[in-house]
Design a protein around this nucleic acid. Structure first.
Length: 574
RNA sequence: UGGGGUAUAGCGUAAAGGCAGCGCAGCUGGCUCUGAACCAGUUAGUCGGGGUUCGAAUCCCUGUACCCCAGCCA
């Protein structure tokens, strides 16, 4: 096609419409193409199909938010379906944790909570159909023999000697497999496809194995269990899923699902594969996460340093912050790695809008206001959230002796340092201007007390004469402060890719020894005594914090979700 | 070295033959009762080689790199 810039149709269209053309990701494109062709009668129905054999992590969050988001965006439905086809690895404990995490993320399956195991009877009937068509057979080869006869990338597999059993014999044997007549591993049901296929998945894949293992939902009803490849496409078909969104490694299984569904002549969903999430400074494999938990490198699956959904929740992440994260990273088929800062930034973005501001001193030293009346106390008004006026204000108490952050005083300060130093004036947030006069040190030369004089004319933090101060520091009144433990979390690993095969040694050698710093004697403003698990706070000038589940009324514990951005640290380095 | 995928700035992600754009990170500056937030500006990119075309990230050929696949796991 030839066209001049002047007559380009797409450009004309853009000029006509007010809004710029919406850019769709590749999944949205497929959905919209299908909507146009009427392929699924304008239905959109997605699902999240976890196996209940472990805890969900942020990679699953991407999949959940994606699938649920697509359904919601196109007015469709979303199912939660447990892919519980292997009782030897699964447990009801995981079912509950997964439900909790999916719900917390905001993916609403309404009344559509399903289990693959509820379809076992129907799958069995489908298998019988395939046997009757001559497309499946009972095979007596051992697992090892099957492996040996599968062939390699360059040489075709060799057909099983049982491949040409009669339909009657197969029917009889399959029934007896179900009835529990044979021991584990002695027989399988295999699809009769093509032992020479370049796609290993089509070299007569196993559909059923014998497993005399009780199922967490089916009890001892079954002696045979369907394999993932046989079951999964059927599950989607049975539920009327239109678009089965999954990760890239299932791409070459798609021809097999297609084969099953076509041979059965049943409803046929469209599978779409996307690249799984990789994040820097963490690991994502179930095996490694399990190892970290089992060997106590972390404090359980919900340790706030873990990339698990429950870990992120305990860390103080919000569902919205994960949705922001997913929107930022997008979705594609390219195998990418997301920088950890993107996740951190997503939670900052959400919490900046929501978190109530509070003052807390993590590494306290005393500030004494020499000219403030002994014994006097007053209440000052502080804004709860400058980003949301509706959050209102609170009162904070103030007196002659306060706690301030050790690092907010420097005896010999560079010019660019805006905080306390002898002779310099700063603002105590929401309180007064104070001018530093001197400091007191202990025998080791550590500063233990800073002495200041305040200007009574600056109450509330503003001066009548309009003079400015460069720095504002936070503080907590010694009279009303509450003590707390504060846990400062940082990245779990100190290299971007702990899994990099070029690394020396094991991924565990790269654990960040400073990923958790416990601060025992933190001083918090009194209002923090009422904190509950769902609250999100910004400790001003420090970071975002949330109450830990181990906190008690008498012994509060706060977790740092993420620090505030800190441009001073860059200046200080220069 | 059989098959299936994927390559656009430091990291992600758009552009459906027509000005390579956006977010994050970086850098400058502004504003500020949080060295936060916010605002403005700015650096930097089509894997290589051919071809088709007035015009190619896009189409064709060819090469390269990376990911996935030989469980009775999912």
């Amino acid at each position: 096609m030839t066209s001049t810039p002047e007559s380009n149709p797409r450009q004309d269209q853009n000029e006509r419409s007010e809004e710029p053309a919406r850019s769709l990701n590749f999944i949205e494109q497929i959905i919209e193409d299908d909507a146009k062709s009427g392929r699924f009668g304008n239905r959109v129905h997605t699902r999240f199909p976890p196996e209940p054999n472990g805890y969900l992590h942020v990679g699953h969050a991407k999949a959940i938010i994606l699938s649920y988001g697509i359904a919601k965006q196109y007015g469709g439905l979303f199912n939660l379906r447990f892919d519980d086809t292997n009782p030897s690895k699964e447990d009801v404990e995981y079912v509950e944790s997964i439900k909790e995490d999916v719900k917390w993320l905001g993916a609403d399956w309404q009344d559509r909570l399903f289990f693959a195991s509820d379809y076992f009877e129907q799958m069995y009937e489908y298998a019988v159909q395939l046997i009757k068509k001559g497309k499946a057979y009972v095979c007596d080869l051992t697992a090892e023999q099957i492996r040996e006869t599968r062939g390699t990338a360059t040489v075709p597999g060799t057909p099983s000697p049982y491949r040409d059993r009669s339909v009657e014999e197969n029917l009889d044997l399959f029934k007896r497999m179900r009835d529990g007549e044979f021991p584990d591993g002695s027989k399988t049901l295999r699809a009769k496809i093509d032992m020479a296929s370049p796609n290993f998945n089509l070299r007569d894949p196993v559909m059923y194995r014998i497993l005399h293992t009780p199922h967490h939902r089916q009890g001892t009803k079954w002696s045979i269990y369907p394999m993932y490849d046989w079951a999964h496409g059927l599950e989607d078909s049975i539920e009327g899923i239109t678009h089965s969104i999954c990760t890239l490694e299932f791409e070459h299984h798609r021809p097999l699902y297609d084969w099953f569904l076509n041979e059965l002549g049943v409803y046929h969903p469209q599978q779409i594969e996307f690249a799984r999430l990789n994040l820097t400074y963490t690991v994502m494999s179930k095996r490694k996460l399990l190892e970290l938990v089992k060997n106590n490198y972390v404090d359980g699956w919900d340790d706030p340093r873990m990339p698990t959904i429950c870990g992120l929740r305990r860390r103080g992440f919000t569902p919205e912050s994960l949705r922001i994260f997913c929107k930022t990273i997008g979705v594609a088929k390219f195998n990418s790695t997301i920088e950890a800062t993107v996740l951190e930034n997503a939670v900052r973005e959400d919490l900046n809008k929501k978190a109530l501001r509070r003052m807390a001193v993590l590494d306290p030293i005393k500030l004494v206001i020499d000219n403030y009346p002994e014994g006097q106390t007053e209440k000052l008004v502080a804004v709860n959230n400058p980003e949301n006026e509706a959050d209102g204000v609170r009162e904070v108490s103030f007196s002659k002796t306060l706690y301030i952050e050790r690092e907010d005083f420097m005896e010999d300060a560079p010019k660019k340092y805006y905080r306390l130093s002898p002779g310099r004036e700063v603002r105590l947030r929401y309180a007064y201007y104070v001018t530093c006069k001197s400091c007191v040190k202990d025998a080791d030369g550590n500063v233990v007390e800073v002495h200041c004089e305040y200007d009574p004319e600056t109450r509330g933090g503003q001066s009548a004469d309009g003079r400015r101060v460069q720095g504002t520091i936070h503080w907590v009144d010694t009279q009303t402060a509450i003590d707390a433990e504060v846990r400062l979390y940082d990245r779990l690993f100190n290299v971007p890719n702990p899994d990099d095969p070029d690394n020396l040694g094991d991924y565990k050698d790269y654990l960040n020894p400073e990923s958790l710093k416990v601060v025992k004697g933190a001083k918090l403003e009194a209002a923090l005594a009422d904190a509950s698990l769902d609250d999100r706070f910004q400790f001003e000038r420090i970071g975002y914090f949330t109450l830990d589940k181990t906190a008690t009324k008498d012994a509060p514990v706060f977790n740092r979700t993420v620090s505030l951005r800190d441009s001073w640290s860059k200046v200080a380095k220069k």
